[in-house]
Design a protein around this nucleic acid. Structure first.
Lengths: 343, 343
DNA sequence: ATGAAAGCGCTAACAG
DNA sequence: CTGTTAGCGCTTTCAT
């Protein structure tokens, strides 16, 4: 079934298709009465302008490409919600693509977005940032990265400033008396993971606590990885009394593993996360974490992208501070391990 | 910056643009050696085919429109993840739109999708299902609804079969000894809300328990609404000993409200939800709920849509069963209220 | 095996 | 104020 086009309307209204085009776009160059008649006919015919035809001519699709790891990750979902908000307000639609943290898939996704001639790209948790260049540049599509792996080659990015927050949350654990503190990271080499580990390591160093390699393990940023990594930590001869996790999903996995061994949180082991998901206050116990303003960051990134697209120059690389949120998953270590660090 | 087109390649290769088109699409009608040369040049020039040009001609955009309430709702996010999975495998991209449960916005969103000439539409939790017709039919775009408000006018839908599951979960509460059971619904008149309420009401009736209007209140399907509605219930002279919530987000809100008054779950009040979000086993206490196979439902809906688009006929209206998941948020009522139903 | 030409739906420059 | 014409990038006859 062929949708009705301006030609069909033109025929019905006995005018040229250009007049229809003008009338429908509210051009002042057309007689108000004919314009009204044309609009009436268009309405009656159920006319919907074709973005394809228009875009081909105007070289704008009014479409933004968004690449996320997986939309099932609540961090990504919130980012996208923020992006949608500002994109829609500006009249843009969102083409959504998932990378599943696989570089090869990510590149394919971006290529598809570019074939659809999106006017701009937002990529969250990208693993291949630098490789975009060769794709993007010939087409000249602007891109803004969010919490990307490699900040270097791009001019526009917004990222959570993980290091200070991780330092703070680790010091919180130290202040509670912990000495044997583990870190469950991600496995993909994200910038954020590196910063969080670094904050953790610096806090330990600053307090004269030895960095034990066996206490820094890798999850996958999801619940499953948290379970697995924590299970391994619990097998250690001297298990940690506290664990700082790359993100809240990992922390939830860690808590499951801990509880499944009959251990209590935080009495036996303290757990801290990062992100502050919308339900992180509802876990058992409520999770100590770092608040990342996900929706805001999505919105900021979209604003920047729109500005860049409009040719305005603007902030290059925004670092958003996190905020320490202390809840009940962290507490003093069990008294029998408070005395020191038996090696 | 104008992207390179087949014309540019044609010029560089000293052939006509039709030959380029053929070569790039692997047509057998072109000399293998020229084809190879053309492909090499295309590669070197960083050519990316324009989906716009192609779609205009082929009348296919290889794009699916997806309408959700808000992507920040984990149920929607999982649905979309399921949709993406099958859509991508079939080579389709996803244009994502949010309705925010506002009919007016939903219609605008769908209109925008249709202007972009999506090949099919998936709408979850639609409030305006029937109104799509006048939009869709002139264009002939197939649509599949997921957990929609109005099943009637559409031929293809997949929905969770809420009634039996709600009956079962309410009977679970009754079996525990509860008599004063509340229901916190949604406020938008969704089919799912109606079914869940009906299951609740039928269970009560079947067990000779009076249906008290003041115990059936409305939230908004989100945490905030759960808090508000539960707070009101707690103000009642005779507060309920159990509450069945429209969905898990509402239940989480209810649990917050309950705990903020210093009451215990389930000792003072039992709470049950619906959906089984990926973290519903991690709440405090773990939530009794009904498992809805969200990702699967998204995938099924997408499969159906693809079939309909391909002209195959297939299942009309799939009802997916839910599965009762009993955890720790439900238990016997406090003993002082077990004796009966003081009015 | 290749080219020329038409046309998808739209906008816009130009001519009246 | 309106019509004619061209062209965006592509596919697809129809010739050759």
């Amino acid at each position: 079934m062929k949708p009705v086009s301006i030609k069909d309307i033109a025929r019905a209204a006995r005018v040229s298709h250009s007049t229809v085009s003008r009338a429908l776009r509210g051009s002042p160059l057309v007689n108000p009465k004919t314009a009204a008649r044309i609009r009436r006919i268009a309405e009656k015919l159920g006319y919907l302008p074709s973005a394809l035809g228009r875009s081909l001519k105007t070289r704008q699709t009014m479409t933004l490409g968004v690449v996320v790891n997986t939309i099932a990750d609540p961090v990504m979902a919130e980012l996208v919600a923020g992006i949608q908000e500002v994109a829609n307000r500006a009249g843009y639609s969102i083409l959504l693509a998932e990378s599943h943290a696989e570089p090869e898939r990510e590149l394919r996704a971006v290529r598809s977005l570019l074939e659809h001639r999106v006017d701009g790209v937002l990529a969250a948790a990208s693993r291949v940032g630098p490789d975009y260049r060769s794709l993007l540049e010939p087409i000249g599509v602007p891109i803004v990265l969010i919490n990307n792996q490699h900040p270097q080659p791009y001019r526009h990015a917004v990222s959570i400033d993980s290091l200070p927050a991780s330092l703070a949350i680790t010091e919180h654990l130290i202040a509670l008396g912990h000495r044997r503190i583990a870190y469950i990271g991600d496995r993909y080499g994200y910038q954020t993971d590196w910063e969080r580990y670094t904050g953790y390591a610096e806090a330990l160093r600053a307090h004269g606590i030895e960095l034990r390699p066996e206490l820094a393990v890798k999850g996958d940023g999801m619940i499953a990885g948290g379970i697995e990594a924590m299970s391994a930590l619990l097998e250690l001869r001297h298990r940690p009394t506290a664990v700082f996790c790359y993100n809240d999903l990992t922390a939830i996995g860690a808590m499951r593993a801990i509880r499944s061994r009959g251990l209590r949180i935080p009495q036996d082991i303290s757990v801290a996360g990062f992100d502050d998901l919308f339900f992180s206050a509802d876990t058992n116990p409520p999770l100590t974490t770092v608040r990342q303003p996900k929706r805001l960051m999505g919105a900021m990134a979209a604003e920047i992208l729109l500005k860049v697209m409009a040719g305005e120059e603007c902030e290059q690389d925004i670092r958003v501070p996190g905020e320490l949120v202390i809840r009940e998953s962290t507490g003093p270590p069990p008294s029998n391990s408070r005395t020191g660090d038996p090696s």
